[in-house]
Computed example of a mutant assay.
Amino acid sequence: MNVLEGIAAALTPLGLLWTLLIIGVATFIHELAHYALARRQGVAVQSFSIGMGPVLLRRAWRGTEWRLSLLPIGGYVEIDGMAPEDDGQGGYRQPTRGFAALPAWGKVAILLAGPLVNLLLAVALMTLNFSAQGVPETARQDRAYISGIVSGSRAQQLGLRAGDVITAVDGQPLPQTFTQDGQTLPGWQRVQRALATDGRRTLTVEQAGVARQITFDWEARVGGTQQRLGIQYGPLIEYRRLSVPAAFSNSLRVTAEALPQVLRSFAGLFQRFFTLDLSRDENVSGPIGTAEIVSRAAALSPWALVQVAILLNLSLAFFNLLPIPGLDGGRIVLVLVGALRGRPLSFGQEQAITFAGFALVMALMVFVVVRDVTRFF
């Protein structure tokens, strides 16, 4: 299998569609928040784009050119007074109007609005998730939950699917626990133990709430090789629904707990970047890895997609708040430095710092994409 075939096998059309939708919504509300806070303070916005690169569609409305661009990797708003001005002599100078003329608090409000609205969307989605689906409490051990099916495996041929639940083997319900070879094992492992011997096997399976029996002949070893049915198991979690106030409170707690975890993931990414370590990191995914995760989530349930949207919005909010020039957090730092000095940085200083930060972010994006692709070699 070549690289392109490997990537195609990892993704699904529905997964790609959901990926574009989730990223598109997160990007749109992020840029819309910047736009709204700028217009609220009387600052003009020249353009608003979803996507980057060549413009596919454009329409002027309320003094702004609204664009849909080719590359679905982000978006931007061109706010008056953020970019250098033409000095009329073929060069550029520091802007003096629009954003540049605002007080420090006004500039920070515009810059902070994007990450903040992603954070608020994540909290809102978590609140919905905890109140409608519930919070996980206990994992049932008397059932074997199928979290995934290996492509082309015997399990796939038998019609087993991700999300199915095995409740019995050979007519015997799975126990909470059982003892074998002096070990106390969870009941769902009885399925694996039953497949360690030859014979005719019957699995009782719940598919979308409907029970059915699947009977098949099984050889545990073929040519000295242990055979695999092709099932990936996961814990069967039970959920308890929360009231909306309790769900909101729980969402704030989870967000606070997620911050250090996300920062550690970013720290690990930067460490791999500076050491050119292309080994896979499960905590940070590139565009292909993200689309792969969304494809798996789309095959499970709508709530799995909601959880992916929560994680993506949290990551987008926290990443943009990193104090790296070119990101919202880095721009906020420059504004605060200027406020503490009593005057903004010089045009040359600000341009050099912003360019260095932007180059770092672009190099980091290229690194993540390259690391994403190398998984398939």
Rank of each mutant, 00 (worst) to 15 (best):
S249G: 15
S265N: 12
V254L: 13
F248D: 00
L276R: 14
A246I: 00
A267K: 13
S249V: 06
L259Q: 10
L252N: 10
L259C: 03
Q271L: 07
A247I: 00
A247K: 04
T275G: 04
T275K: 11
E238Q: 14
R264S: 12
L269N: 00
V244A: 05
A256Y: 13
S265E: 07
R272Q: 15
R264Q: 13
V244T: 05
T255C: 05
Q271C: 00
A256G: 15
S249K: 11
L252H: 07
F274H: 04
L252E: 07
L269G: 08
V244W: 12
A256K: 11
F266I: 15
S243V: 08
P260Q: 04
G268L: 12
L269Q: 03
P245A: 08
S265G: 15
A246K: 04
A256V: 14
R264M: 06
F248L: 14
Q261N: 03
A247T: 07
E238V: 09
L263D: 04
Q271D: 11
P245L: 12
R264N: 10
E257I: 04
L252I: 14
F274S: 08
L276Y: 02
P245G: 08
S251C: 06
F270T: 11
S251L: 06
A267F: 12
R253M: 06
S265F: 05
F270A: 09
L259S: 12
L269P: 03
F274P: 04
A267D: 12
S251V: 01
A246P: 01
T275E: 04
P245E: 06
L276P: 00
P260V: 01
F274D: 04
S249A: 15
G268V: 11
A267Y: 14
F248T: 07
T275P: 01
F266E: 11
L242F: 06
T255D: 01
S265D: 04
S243P: 03
L242A: 00
Q271F: 00
F274K: 08
Y239P: 04
L269K: 00
A247N: 10
E257M: 10
